[in-house]
């Protein structure tokens, strides 16, 4: 699509950016002396949190932000590379529910490209061919692993890998540099995370090969070879890539690593603040909204558990606005 076809969408998104918390407003929530005061400051910005169960209000807010994006996007498939991972997450939930005979209500990830209920119908009736093409192989592999070995971690890793590879493939088909860059970052971060866990839990190279997705940041073969030699070799390998910061963060904690990954995505999107045309400002708004919801979740949870302001600041992600 031509960039000027997003003119209406970008203008609406810019108007809606005023609904997001600025750095100062986020800071005022962090510095609120009590949970009640933090909630009061959030409610002034349109959050409708009534008690200590803040999750429904946050989910509702994210749905409102997504509703705006959904309304303004001239071609909804442009967002597939970003939200496809939620379909794979839903597939994992459904697979496990099917194997364990459990319910999936309230567990689905939102927003998604495909209806979770339709996916559930296909999985529960074992009509694999009725699933969307991107989910068919992951569904077959995960079902085989879960039903034969019950090895849920491997099934999850195989599905996550498929999710990353399809995100990159979809982004490439969309021919949009910002979407491709974000898909590459998501994939690289997911690869680092899974390999770090593999090293800590002593997983075999064969597991790593099945779990790691191809990405442009580093060679799959080389990073697995480094991970197979141990944590030091792995971190040394990363220090020679653009993910040096990730290696430093993972040394601190996995929470710090996840924060680094989110900040990396926001830093890529920071350049779009001055863009007037194209899909980039809409993508930035989506990530900004997600980051805001994540930050509020961190802050409110910390306030409820009496954590210090310093601890909260160490966990909060950078704000886009």
């Amino acid at each position: 699509m031509r960039d000027t076809e997003y003119t209406f969408a970008v203008a609406r998104i810019r108007s809606n950016e005023n609904r997001l918390l600025t750095s100062q407003e986020l800071n005022s929530v962090i510095t609120a002396p009590t949970y009640k005061e933090a909630v009061s400051r959030l409610n002034e910005k349109g959050y409708n949190i009534t008690d200590t169960d803040y999750s429904p209000a946050l989910s509702k807010r994210m749905k409102e932000f997504w509703q705006v994006i959904n309304e303004v996007l001239p071609d909804k498939s442009q967002f597939d590379s970003i939200i496809l991972k939620n379909d794979f997450a839903n597939l994992k939930i459904i697979e496990k529910a099917f194997i364990l005979g459990k319910d999936t209500d309230g567990l689905y990830e939102y927003p998604s490209v495909y209806s979770p209920e339709e996916l559930k119908e296909c999985v529960f009736s074992r009509k694999n061919s009725l699933l969307p093409e991107c989910l068919q192989h992951a569904d077959r592999s995960a079902y085989r692993i879960l039903s034969k070995t019950g090895f849920a971690q491997l099934a999850d890793s195989v599905t996550d890998r498929a999710s990353m590879e399809w995100s990159i493939k979809t982004a490439k088909n969309g021919d949009n540099p910002i979407l491709l860059k974000l898909a590459e970052i998501e994939t690289a971060c997911a690869d680092i995370k899974v390999l770090y866990r593999c090293i800590l839990t002593g997983k075999a190279v064969s597991f790593m090969e099945r779990a790691v997705a191809e990405c442009s940041a580093f060679s799959k073969k080389d990073i697995i070879a480094a991970a197979a030699k141990g944590l030091e070799e792995f971190l040394e390998f990363l220090s020679h890539t653009e993910y040096k910061g990730a290696a430093d963060a993972v040394k601190v904690s996995t929470t710090e690593f996840e924060r680094w990954c989110d900040n990396k995505k926001i830093s890529v999107l920071a350049d779009t603040k001055t863009e007037v045309f194209g899909i980039a400002p809409i993508v930035a708004f989506y990530y900004a909204a997600q980051t805001e919801i994540r930050n509020i979740r961190i802050i409110l949870s910390a306030k409820l558990n009496g954590l210090t302001e310093e601890t909260i600041r160490a966990r909060v992600r950078e704000s886009y606005v």
Partner: peptide, 14 residues
């Protein structure tokens, strides 16, 4: 036409 699209986007919100 182009500015009109952008203007409509803003007026739709406010």
């Amino acid at each position: 036409g182009l500015v009109g699209q952008a203007a409509a986007g803003v007026v739709a919100e406010d």
